[in-house]
Design a protein around this nucleic acid. Structure first.
Length: 261
DNA sequence: CGTATCCTGACC
DNA sequence: GGTCAGGATACG
């Protein structure tokens, strides 16, 4: 499940593959994608030069010489595949972007829930997003403000992209474990100390994932996560069995002993 | 606030 | 052959 670190990594790969090049063609290979990218949009894309690639939250933004912006969201299972436009497209390719130098960047997505949308110059690009937790100028007061207005559980609040942009189900659970906060605690009732600990934990968890994405992390065989997808397995801090609950129709994993309300 | 929807591979 | 997962959005 691509969250902020994986999307950041994907955006770097994309940038390397497409920056400064011109779109020769964009092929839509899945019915669901046609809804977002009608023939009119594809016509607007042809011949456009890609002037920059940026990430905001889990969104990837390709700025085009036409003034339009192509916005990509991987949802659950999206990823980029960079290959040669001359060879047949791989399995699960939903959208293929062919560049003027023969390179092809394909959106691979088995579940086909990814979205690719073209926004005309000046139109609203993205839904309301909170700050990126990786932004060094983000201060804990901003997080405090966002949480103070939410009476949902802290886990559900962290998944709300209007609170922080880019945090998903896995790293929300991992950060709450690191900060020793019960995922069922009400967001607005977190103490200041816990708010600060939580922001630190989110940043630490995302930074570790980013290092892993970049391949600068040596797998130690202990497993990728402390709590996520570890129901029944012992907590690495206290040995208590990790528990799984459902919040807002999503799995939450946590240690019932060392994560307190 | 909770719940259905999109999609399809994985799993029973 | 039925159920489930899950990010974001729409809806009740």
């Amino acid at each position: 499940m691509p969250e902020l670190p994986e999307v950041e990594h994907a955006a770097r790969i994309l940038r390397t593959a497409v920056l400064g090049k011109t779109v020769r063609n964009l092929r839509v290979l899945h019915r669901a994608q046609r809804r977002h990218l009608p023939p009119r949009a594809i016509a607007r894309l042809r011949g456009a030069r890609i002037t920059s690639v940026d990430r905001r939250g889990k969104h990837q933004l390709l700025s085009l010489s036409t003034g339009d912006t192509l916005v990509v969201h991987f949802r659950m299972t999206g990823d980029w595949l960079v290959d040669d436009a001359a060879v047949p497209v791989s399995k699960y390719v939903r959208v293929a972007i062919e560049l003027d130098d023969g390179v092809r960047v394909s959106l691979v997505d088995p579940r086909a829930l990814s979205t690719v949308t073209l926004h005309r110059d000046g139109s609203t690009l993205l839904p309301a997003l909170g700050p990126d937790p990786t932004d060094p100028s983000l201060r804990v007061e901003t997080l405090r403000d966002a949480l103070s207005r939410r009476r949902v559980s802290i886990k559900v609040a962290l998944l709300d992209q209007r609170v922080l942009a880019g945090v998903g189900n896995i790293y929300a659970a991992e950060a709450l474990w690191l900060a020793r906060i019960d995922p069922r605690a009400i967001a607005s009732s977190l103490s200041r100390a816990r708010q600060a600990r939580l922001l630190d934990a989110i940043r630490a968890v995302l930074a570790k994932a980013q290092r892993r994405s970049a391949g600068r992390y040596r797998e130690d065989g202990v497993g990728r996560f402390e709590v996520y997808d570890r129901e029944g397995l012992p907590c690495s801090r206290c040995g208590t069995a990790i528990r799984r609950i459902v919040q807002a129709a999503r799995s939450t994993y946590y240690c019932p002993f060392c994560q307190r309300r």
